[in-house]
Simulated scan of single mutants.
Amino acid sequence: MKLREIQRICASDMHINVSTDYFYKAKKIMKEKMAGNSKTEFGMLWDYAQELRSRMLGAQ
């Protein structure tokens, strides 16, 4: 989403007027958080796979 579009939506829906600098910072923070979450989840795939293997062996 473009910064001007976010600014327009906030102005019309929430009745707030904030500069694009604040939206830029907020968007940057959210991108970093989203990237961090996916990296963490991807890193846990090996743990998930190991848990599945151990449960499958125990069910036999």
Rank of each mutant, 00 (worst) to 15 (best):
E51K: 08
A35G: 01
E41A: 10
A35R: 04
K33H: 09
E5L: 13
T40H: 12
F42Y: 05
L3T: 03
A11T: 06
L52P: 02
A59M: 05
A49F: 07
I16D: 01
L57I: 05
Q7V: 02
N17K: 06
S54E: 11
L45N: 14
S19A: 09
K31Y: 05
F42R: 13
R53K: 12
I6H: 01
W46V: 14
A49H: 08
K39E: 15
T40D: 08
Q7P: 01
I6L: 12
T20Y: 09
A35W: 00
C10L: 11
A11E: 13
M44E: 14
K27P: 00
R4I: 00
I9D: 10
A26Y: 13
M44W: 07
M30N: 13
N17M: 08
N37H: 01
K39L: 14
Y22F: 15
M1Y: 03
T40M: 13
A11M: 09
I29L: 09
I29W: 07
K28Q: 15
N37S: 04
D21W: 12
K27Q: 03
M44D: 10
C10H: 09
S19P: 01
M14Q: 01
G36K: 08
G43K: 03
N17V: 07
A49M: 08
T40P: 01
I9L: 13
R53I: 11
L3R: 05
R53L: 11
I9N: 03
A59G: 02
H15F: 00
D21Y: 11
S54G: 06
H15T: 00
V18N: 00
D13H: 06
S12F: 07
K39S: 14
F23Y: 09
E41H: 09
T40F: 11
V18G: 03
F42L: 11
M1K: 03
A26E: 13
M44P: 03
K31G: 03
M14I: 00
M14D: 00
T40V: 13
S54N: 06
R4F: 03
L45K: 13
S12Q: 09
V18C: 01
E32P: 00
E32Q: 06
V18M: 03
A11Y: 12
T40G: 03
E41I: 07
H15V: 01
Y22N: 15
N37W: 02
R53D: 08
Y48T: 11
Q50V: 13
K28Y: 10
F42M: 10
F23P: 00
I16F: 04
G36H: 06
C10M: 09
R8D: 11
S12D: 12
E32G: 02
S19C: 06
R4W: 04
I9W: 11
Y48S: 04
A49V: 14
K39R: 15
G43E: 09
